[in-house]
């Protein structure tokens, strides 16, 4: 798999599901934490990518 975006989504899913299962007990709490973590990682990464855009590669 060569897509950077797919790797971002896949890795974020892996880590979010792991921590949601580890740190929360009920289904509702797990979904909440998992989505929060997933959104933070994906959106945070995209935001950082855009912030770095002006800099030479």
């Amino acid at each position: 798999m060569r897509s950077h975006l797919l790797h971002l989504l896949l890795y974020s899913t892996l880590v979010s599901v792991f921590f949601a299962l580890l740190a929360r007990r009920t289904g509702r709490e797990r979904w909440r934490l998992g989505l929060l973590l997933w959104g933070g990682m994906v959106l945070g990464t995209l935001a950082l990518a855009w912030l770095m855009f002006p800099f030479p590669g």
Binding site: R2, H7, Y11, L14, V15, F18, L22
Partner: peptide
Amino acid sequence: SGLSIYGTAYLWTAGLMNLLLLFD
């Protein structure tokens, strides 16, 4: 390989997650 950096992240994440599970 250009994908190696992702592969490394997955490998280290697997190991570190399992170490966390020992504490769990």
